[in-house]
């Protein structure tokens, strides 16, 4: 399991999914974009929602709820794209809503909480215990690697 020493980022881009509050290192995030029309890709892994056009670049969109085994969204809000750049490739993570960029301190960190089990626990590095709630830190590389589970 990842230990707290490997967590180096202090500025976190945060977003909401279901009843959870997530964060990823701000340096991984290329940009936040409002919802764009997505072309589905038949035969693709189920987590892949499809392809979208971001300024004439083709970006693969991942349904982060699906990826994290969270229940399907039932409201009428459109998801938001958190576009990350991994190995020179742009991938969009679809989230319910985005929060602020937060500055956190190392002391608040604790590795993976017990509340998450199974495949999801591998995708989470740990959590920051903020005053009002837990901020779960996603391992972005693992999240976008759909072969590794």
């Amino acid at each position: 399991m990842t230990t707290s020493t490997s967590i180096e980022q202090h500025q976190l881009c945060t977003f909401y999914l279901d009843k959870f509050f997530f964060g990823i290192g701000v340096e991984k995030v290329q940009e936040i974009v409002r919802y764009q029309k997505i072309t589905r890709v038949p035969l693709a892994p189920p987590e892949v929602r499809g392809l979208m056009n971001l300024r004439n670049q083709i970006v693969t969109a991942i349904d982060l709820r699906d990826r994290l085994d969270l229940p399907e969204y039932r409201g009428d809000m459109l998801p938001i794209n958190v576009v990350v750049k991994i190995d020179e490739e742009m991938i969009s993570l679809l989230v319910d809503d985005v929060g602020d960029v937060l500055e956190v301190s190392q002391e608040q960190f604790e590795s993976s909480p017990e509340t998450l089990t199974g495949k999801v626990s591998k995708l989470i590095r740990g959590a920051y215990k903020l005053e009002e709630r837990l901020l779960l830190i996603l391992d972005v590389e693992k999240v976008v690697d759909l072969t590794g589970y």
């Binding site: 072309t39 392809l51 759909l146």
Partner: peptide
């Protein structure tokens, strides 16, 4: 992208006149 390379049915994608993929 890498996530979709494994699907043998598609060789790539393009952006159409209406901006969609």
């Amino acid at each position: 992208g890498k996530l979709l390379k494994a699907i043998p049915c598609f060789s790539g994608a393009t952006i159409m006149g209406d901006g969609q993929v």
